[in-house]
Design a protein around this nucleic acid. Structure first.
Lengths: 144, 144
DNA sequence: CCTGAAAATATATCGCC
DNA sequence: GGCGATATATTTTCAGG
């Protein structure tokens, strides 16, 4: 993992659909060499995937919240988490609560319905997101 | 936005680097038609970007935490948030705290240093992530 | 590990329905 | 909106340093 690998990671973090040819021009290296480096970064698990970012509001999902959760039946709760489309992220945490969920719903009413379902599994505390300042800041600094 | 648009979104959410030709085969539509639909989805802001997912641990970042924050100088705090590479996500929230941060650091020691810096801006409460069950579940159901 | 060249794919841009 | 055809660009593959 040298500086060129970091440049590749940084570039793909900004735009995962860039062509390898264009990247190879940006970083002044032949296109087959970039292809091979990229293949290795994927193989080693440094890059775990590529995803399109989709605007929740354009899909009618206008409410985002984080829910702290305390469950005493973790297996059951995780099955529920997997099966529930509103739960976008699911983290196991230390401290008073044992789960943190990111939840995306259509309106605050839909969020309320979701939270009522949650009450079947334990105790929760909700933080409503008013706005997102930024998300997914790059882990690789521009000069690494 | 019909069923085909949802198929395009779902496919790109799973793999943002798929070729349009391959997508056009999967959804049985001509390549120029898929290209045109994709162009419109980007133009309308339904798709806001494409990013590579990078494994924090492969970059030596082994600690993730969420930090609840109460600041009484929001402008100052947001400038700090932008400038601080450890802060990966920054949300404005309602309730007792006014910010929620996702923080990624190398070790728990680096997290501690970060939290000490934070104390200059207000009061915080930290939830350490033990493990991530899943992240970025698709907002578009497979049959929409 | 990288380059350069050639063959196989993919994309952009037509005119047409 | 979508299709087919074609010109341009990109990716894959591989011999050679």
């Amino acid at each position: 993992m040298d500086r060129i690998d970091y440049q590749i990671l940084s570039t793909l973090h900004d735009n995962a659909r860039i062509t390898i040819s264009e990247m190879s021009r940006m970083i002044a290296m032949s296109q087959p060499a970039v292809t091979e480096r990229l293949r290795k970064l994927e193989e080693q698990g440094v890059i775990t995937g590529y995803r399109a970012e989709i605007s929740p509001s354009k899909l009618g999902k206008h409410t985002t919240a984080f829910v702290l959760f305390k469950s005493n039946n973790c297996k059951e709760f995780e099955v529920f988490g997997e099966a529930t489309p509103e739960i976008v992220d699911l983290y196991r945490t230390g401290g008073e609560y044992n789960y943190l969920l990111k939840v995306v719903t259509e309106t605050s009413e839909t969020l309320e319905t979701f939270l009522e379902t949650c009450n079947n599994f334990g105790f929760s505390s909700t933080l409503v997101v008013l706005s997102t300042r930024f998300e997914d800041k790059s882990l690789v600094g521009s000069t690494e």
